[in-house]
Amino acid sequence: MIIEAKQLRKYFTIAKGQIVHAVDDVSVGIQEHEVLGLVGESGSGKTTFGKTLIGLHDKTAGEVIYKGRVLPAHYKAEDFKNQAREIQIIFQDPYSSLNPRMTIGEIIAEGIVIRDQCSLASVRDRVVYWLERVGLHSDHLSRYPHEFSGGQRQRVGIARALIVEPKLLVCDEPISALDVSVQAQVVKLLDELKSSMGLSMLFIAHDLSMVRYISDRMAVMYLGSLIELGSADAVYFAPKHPYTQLLVKSNPEPDPEYERQRSDALIQGEILSPINLKPSCRFAGRCPLVQARCLEERPLLREVAPGHLVACHLV
């Protein structure tokens, strides 16, 4: 394991007595050179999990172990500096995650300039190398973010994260703001860099097809809980949790013949608010198979087949 979350919990207090259970006792690890895909609806806590994992949020409880070392529950400036050498993140929104007053060159170089205490000019060659590696051009160096399209900005985000040669990369919805053909370009690029640099990745997204394509294992979150975890193909083609089953069935496939034969099995209702949750199955309110037990006892994640974990009383 390169990184492992143990019973990781992140609660936000929004008002007196109102606690948001954004991440609730999530335990999952990422192997060296592995891509772990994390899917879930908006509000399921997947982004909060990614950010808590790497210290962008303080932990409410639980711990994160990186290469055998327990990471601090609350990060100080020094901790970020140390950790940023090995752990980097690509953010969802390529518009708000680049400083509009810095040039592309400054943005990409910032990480190594701070780390190596060197001048911008001395790292120019490496910045150009990375610009070209992500498919941009050396004369883009002195331009500003607003001059670029969403796909190009996302590439700047990738170059900025990878220039420090991290071991672990958290990708928080890196493609959801992009067009189909650009999504494929970015996913291919990440896939290629993963093999050439030996990266481990946490790939957070809500596009099931893309996550299955890029991931080795896939994790499904619902209302702060991890409810299913297994190889990407097992989770996609043979999902065990009722929620995952409905999620896969809702995913539109680019195949009209298949779509015409698909049943109209839909999830009723919407994801609940994660405030002051009771100790029940998180999906009980929308589950077509719900039973009395589901309302009283929160199911734990357990292994139902080799490497395939599900949190459901009925499986």
Binding site: L208, L247, K249, S250, P252, L266, I267
Partner: peptide
Amino acid sequence: LDVTIQAQILN
């Protein structure tokens, strides 16, 4: 929208 909600709206 999320896929589950998308499926509801398309339906």
